[in-house]
């Protein structure tokens, strides 16, 4: 069943979009991630113009993080203070991201820029995840208990503007979460994702937050960052297609249910290894595309 997407201005099979949403939903349910970083490249692969893929994907991120955050809220897994500080950085970073996005779009370089940023982030995060997963698999095999330091001191702990985050049991400089929020916000705006796969590791390893509050807090701040990006993309670039967003959402809501059940049966180490390989696979495909000579060196600029 073909459906005409009013902003993307192409007609595409509605079931293909529902299926894509479902597939990403399964992955996001399994791995506990938003899955935007998989969705945007897939949308580009099936022929949605890259700027529309990015703008629209951000719109569906709002919905998935709302339902995620609502599930975490009653369990008290949201550090609101930390979320707000991250959010301030996130709003600034994502606004700058949309500005850079518009600028690159006017230069005609946005498609390449989106792919390059994907390659860089997917490559980095994928490799880190793979290394971590492989290490933990080996640790389990050899039955060597992981060493754990109680408290470490780095130069970051000397930064000014210290703040107490009770729920996260942290006393750190506010500059740190601000910077994390800013960086991830900037990249999410450029990539059209929530950025969960970047901000979660950053919260655990850079900020040292306890894992229990990380997911809820990140979802909480992603709602607002994604809303900011959606608004700015719609306003500045007219690249948000609500029909496309709703179709993807409908699929991913159902997919996430299946994914959560599948995920419960798999071991977490194996799951992380799988996720790392998946991230690297998507990154690899994009890298391959960037280096493959095009069918024709003359291409139409996206008329958007």
């Amino acid at each position: 069943m073909q459906i005409y997407l009013p902003v993307a201005e192409i007609s595409i099979d509605a079931f293909l979009l529902l299926g894509l949403g479902g597939m990403i939903g399964v992955l996001s349910g399994m791995f506990g991630i938003g899955g935007g970083f998989m969705m945007t490249p897939l949308l580009i692969f099936i022929g949605i113009p890259a700027p529309v893929a990015v703008g629209t994907q951000t719109n569906s991120v709002i919905a998935s993080s709302v339902s995620g955050a609502m599930a975490h809220w009653p369990r008290g897994n949201v550090d609101i203070k930390m979320g707000l500080v991250l959010l301030v950085g996130g709003l600034l970073g994502s606004s700058l991201g949309v500005m850079v996005f518009s600028w690159l779009k006017s230069l005609g370089q946005i498609d390449v820029a989106i792919k390059l940023i994907y390659v860089a982030t997917l490559g980095t995060v994928g490799s880190l995840m793979l290394a971590e997963a492989v290490r933990s698999v080996f640790r389990r095999r050899r039955k060597i208990p992981a060493r754990k330091k109680l408290h470490t001191h780095h130069w970051v702990h000397g930064l000014p503007f210290k703040m107490r985050f009770r729920k996260s049991r942290l006393y750190i400089s506010a500059l740190l979460p601000l910077a994390v929020g800013f960086g991830v916000g900037f990249l999410s705006a450029m990539m059209g994702i929530g950025g969960g796969f970047m901000i979660v590791p950053a919260m655990i390893y850079l900020l040292g937050m306890p894992t229990t509050v990380v997911i809820g807090t990140s979802l909480f701040q992603i709602i607002f960052v994604a809303a900011n990006v959606t608004f700015l993309q719609a306003w500045e670039n007219q690249t948000v297609d609500v029909v496309l967003a709703l179709l993807l959402l409908a699929g991913s809501v159902v997919g996430a249910q299946i994914g959560t059940r599948l995920g419960a049966r798999l071991q977490s180490d194996a799951l992380r290894l799988l996720l790392a390989l998946l991230v690297l696979l998507v990154g690899g495909k994009l890298t391959y595309d960037l280096f493959t000579p095009p069918v024709d060196v003359y291409v139409l600029g996206s008329g958007l």
């Binding site: 719109n59 569906s60 709002i62 919905a63 998935s64 993080s65 709302v66 339902s67 609502m70 599930a71 809303a227 959606t230 608004f231 700015l232 993309q233 719609a234 306003w235 948000v240 609500v242 967003a245 709703l246 959402l249 809501v253």
Partner: peptide
């Protein structure tokens, strides 16, 4: 339009929840 897109997504997320 941007505002409405956000509201639609918020509602969709709430319904999903």
């Amino acid at each position: 339009y941007g505002g409405l897109a956000i509201v639609v997504a918020l509602l969709a997320g709430w319904i999903a929840h």
